[in-house]
Amino acid sequence: MDVFMKGLSKAKEGVVAAAEKTKQGVAEAAGKTKEGVLYVGSKTKEGVVHGVATVAEKTKEQVTNVGGAVVTGVTAVAQKTVEGAGSIAAATGFVKKDQLGKNEEGAPQEGILEDMPVDPDNEAYEMPSEEGYQDYEPEA
């Protein structure tokens, strides 16, 4: 019985440690998101679009440190934060509304985080759909 109880105690310690790591990862992701939003706020009209992409990228980098179902929630929060940063930029006159959601080359930025393969159960990952990809044929 002692062996059984000791095993359960060790398992509990492992769960607590994993929860603490997840909590730490979420806190880091939130900190990076805040950094990115402050970065966007300090940019001029020309830099705002690039700044919004930076927020998304920093958040995406930190999301990889967070495991399990938390990833889905962090990704949703990050996307809403990026959308909010863009709205703030438009409201303050840093950028025109028609410039939001495009990178410096004018290509749409939507789907940055949505296409990231995420499995809350950590069982399997699927690649994003290939609808947006084109076949590449090298020139002879």
Rank of each mutant, 00 (worst) to 15 (best):
M1G: 00
D2S: 12
D2G: 03
D2Q: 12
V3A: 04
F4R: 00
F4Y: 13
M5D: 01
K6Y: 02
G7N: 11
L8D: 00
L8F: 03
S9R: 14
S9W: 07
S9M: 12
S9A: 04
S9D: 03
K10T: 06
K10A: 07
K10S: 04
A11D: 00
A11S: 08
A11P: 00
K12L: 15
K12Q: 06
E13K: 09
G14E: 07
G14D: 03
V15N: 00
V15P: 00
V15H: 00
V15Y: 13
V16M: 15
V16W: 14
A17V: 10
A17R: 08
A19F: 14
A19E: 00
A19M: 06
A19H: 06
A19Q: 01
E20S: 05
E20I: 15
E20P: 00
E20W: 12
E20C: 08
K21M: 08
K21H: 03
K21G: 00
T22R: 02
K23V: 07
Q24C: 01
Q24V: 09
G25Y: 15
G25Q: 15
G25M: 15
G25W: 02
G25V: 14
G25F: 15
V26Q: 00
A27S: 06
A27Y: 13
E28Q: 13
E28N: 02
A29K: 06
A29C: 13
A29E: 00
A29W: 13
A29G: 03
G31I: 07
G31E: 03
G31A: 10
G31T: 03
G31F: 09
K32E: 01
K32L: 09
K32D: 00
T33W: 08
T33I: 05
T33R: 00
K34A: 12
K34L: 04
K34N: 01
E35S: 12
G36F: 06
G36A: 15
V37L: 15
V37E: 00
L38P: 00
Y39V: 09
Y39K: 03
V40Y: 07
V40G: 01
G41I: 03
G41F: 09
T44I: 12
T44N: 01
T44D: 00
T44F: 10
K45I: 10
K45T: 12
E46L: 09
E46F: 15
E46K: 13
E46D: 10
G47M: 07
G47L: 15
V48L: 10
V48I: 10
V48K: 00
V48T: 03
V49Q: 07
V49I: 04
V49W: 05
H50K: 13
H50T: 08
H50L: 09
G51W: 13
G51C: 08
G51R: 12
V52W: 12
A53H: 10
T54D: 01
T54N: 05
V55I: 07
V55G: 02
A56P: 01
A56Y: 15
A56C: 15
A56K: 08
E57Q: 08
E57H: 07
T59N: 00
T59C: 12
K60D: 00
K60T: 06
E61M: 09
Q62C: 13
Q62H: 06
V63Q: 01
V63I: 07
N65M: 05
N65G: 12
N65I: 11
N65D: 03
G67P: 02
G67T: 13
G68S: 04
G68L: 08
G68Y: 13
A69F: 13
A69Q: 11
A69G: 07
A69I: 11
A69Y: 04
V70C: 03
V70I: 10
V70T: 04
V70F: 02
V71P: 01
T72E: 14
T72M: 14
G73P: 02
G73E: 04
T75H: 13
T75Q: 12
V77Q: 02
A78V: 13
Q79A: 09
Q79Y: 10
Q79L: 09
T81S: 10
T81D: 00
V82G: 03
V82P: 01
V82S: 07
E83G: 08
E83V: 14
E83A: 12
G84H: 04
G84K: 13
A85M: 12
A85V: 09
A85K: 04
G86I: 12
G86N: 15
G86A: 12
S87C: 11
A89W: 15
A90D: 03
A90H: 14
A90C: 15
T92K: 04
T92I: 06
T92E: 03
T92L: 10
T92P: 04
T92A: 13
G93W: 13
F94M: 03
F94G: 01
K96A: 11
K96D: 06
K97H: 05
Q99I: 06
N103K: 04
N103Y: 10
N103S: 11
E104W: 11
E105V: 15
E105P: 10
E105C: 03
G106V: 09
A107E: 04
P108A: 05
P108E: 05
P108L: 08
Q109Y: 09
Q109I: 06
Q109G: 03
E110T: 11
G111K: 06
I112K: 03
L113P: 07
L113E: 11
L113G: 08
L113M: 09
E114K: 11
D115N: 08
P117D: 09
V118N: 13
V118I: 06
V118S: 09
P120C: 05
D121F: 11
D121A: 13
N122G: 02
N122A: 04
N122S: 05
E123D: 12
E123W: 09
E123N: 07
A124D: 09
A124S: 05
A124R: 15
Y125M: 03
Y125K: 06
Y125F: 13
Y125T: 09
Y125R: 05
E126L: 06
E126Y: 10
M127N: 08
M127V: 14
M127W: 06
P128V: 03
S129N: 05
E130P: 12
E131H: 15
E131S: 13
E131D: 09
E131I: 10
G132R: 15
G132C: 14
Y133Q: 09
Y133P: 07
D135R: 14
D135G: 05
D135A: 02
Y136W: 13
Y136Q: 07
Y136N: 01
Y136D: 01
Y136R: 04
E137G: 08
P138N: 05
E139Y: 13
A140G: 09
